[in-house]
Design a protein around this nucleic acid. Sequence first.
DNA 1: CGAGTACTTGATCGTGATCAACGGGTGTGG
DNA 2: CCACACCCGTTGATCACGATCAAGTACTCG
Lengths: 233, 233
Amino acid sequence: MNAMLVCADCAVRDKALCGALSDGELAALNRIGRRRHLRRGETLIWAGEDNAVCANLLSGVMKLTAGTADGREQIVGLVYPADFVGRPWPGEAGVTVTALSDVELCTFPRAAFEAVLEDHVRMERLLLQRTFAALDEARNRMLALGRLSAGEKVAAFLLAMADRGSGCRATGFGPVTFDLPLTRGEMAEILGLTIETVSRQLGRLKAAGTIALPGARGVTIRDRAALEAAAGN
Amino acid sequence: MNAMLVCADCAVRDKALCGALSDGELAALNRIGRRRHLRRGETLIWAGEDNAVCANLLSGVMKLTAGTADGREQIVGLVYPADFVGRPWPGEAGVTVTALSDVELCTFPRAAFEAVLEDHVRMERLLLQRTFAALDEARNRMLALGRLSAGEKVAAFLLAMADRGSGCRATGFGPVTFDLPLTRGEMAEILGLTIETVSRQLGRLKAAGTIALPGARGVTIRDRAALEAAAGN
DNA sequence: CGAGTACTTGATCGTGATCAACGGGTGTGG
DNA sequence: CCACACCCGTTGATCACGATCAAGTACTCG
């Protein structure tokens, strides 16, 4: 595979960290980067193992999970195309990174990526800004986990997914439809609930006419104002 | 106040971000830094306001809180001496930063700090590493908030505070005593519980002989193994 | 010494977990 | 092509954990 081609046809070329680099500079990344596919359910990084790879997600969605000793699991973050996963420095991974759908990744050996980062301050700055953003998001989720009721959690989650899924289109009223990249069980893992509770809350919103649930994964927001009210805004 | 003196007698000189700088380079920070005191309960940064200051904490403890529209609050992080608070780039603060005890800070105007960061790559790297660490911690707390029972939350919290408070002394058995920098109400805000539940769980651990509660804020761990078992490890 | 705040303890209630059964879609193999 | 199994989701019944409401106790500080 021609090295330049790897980046030339990259779907997230200017949205990912690499956007900090000129076409010329990309050569450094090209040399160490490798495309990789994972099927739904396959894991890229296991919590507790030494950091071995960093990666940009090209397509699909992944989840970050933390778990207790006795097997309970909590999804602590979602990874979308152009997002970065992994840690550039030696140490133990704190979370497990698993594909929620079939995914395509651009992976880098950790040490090699560290070296590239060393030479490209702008890329390091972008990484820092992304990390701050991830921290803000994590803290928002902490608020949700600790203080929202089940109904509020589900409503807030749907709103967040709608904004992600439909590309931040203006807060238009009128129905918006999108597909969840998650099963009910995974929604429960994100929200700190059980699968039954998630199902019931969705049912309640549907019964109220706030949303519709076309097909297994589809969601239609029929009354955004009501959904926002249910989310406690 | 003599600029050099500010850093020369700094309690956290080599543990904070500034540790990345040589004595000479510190001049840049010295010029823009200002010591500031806050009393217990006073707030340095309000969520929603534009980023105006960055700071290193010199002494005392602070809390980071997020809140819902209707006034519920969740503590999403604690800040200890040598820790950094604030964001170097323009934007809105996501969390409120409030003193839990009387604190001493070394504050920098945001824009000026951004400029210093620009010139000192090693400091930026340290900040990135700290931010990754903060993210790991936040994600661990998400696991606790979403999946641990009240008893597990309280036990795990005491263990974490013991390790912080007593300076990571080896996992020695035998009693360890320390003071919590938090009220019961604040513990509840961290753990996503109510004050009564926290009090009851502490009472239960005390009744079991696992801990003792000398004075209002004191905690003695009498049986670390039992406490770890209660935390689900 | 009195007032206020933090903490504890008790009684009751409600939300969400748990246990259980069932329906619908999908893929596999006979 | 259908039968079957499996997974995912829904729905119902019950239970328990933690919230809420309510007193009452211990420290601190004026």
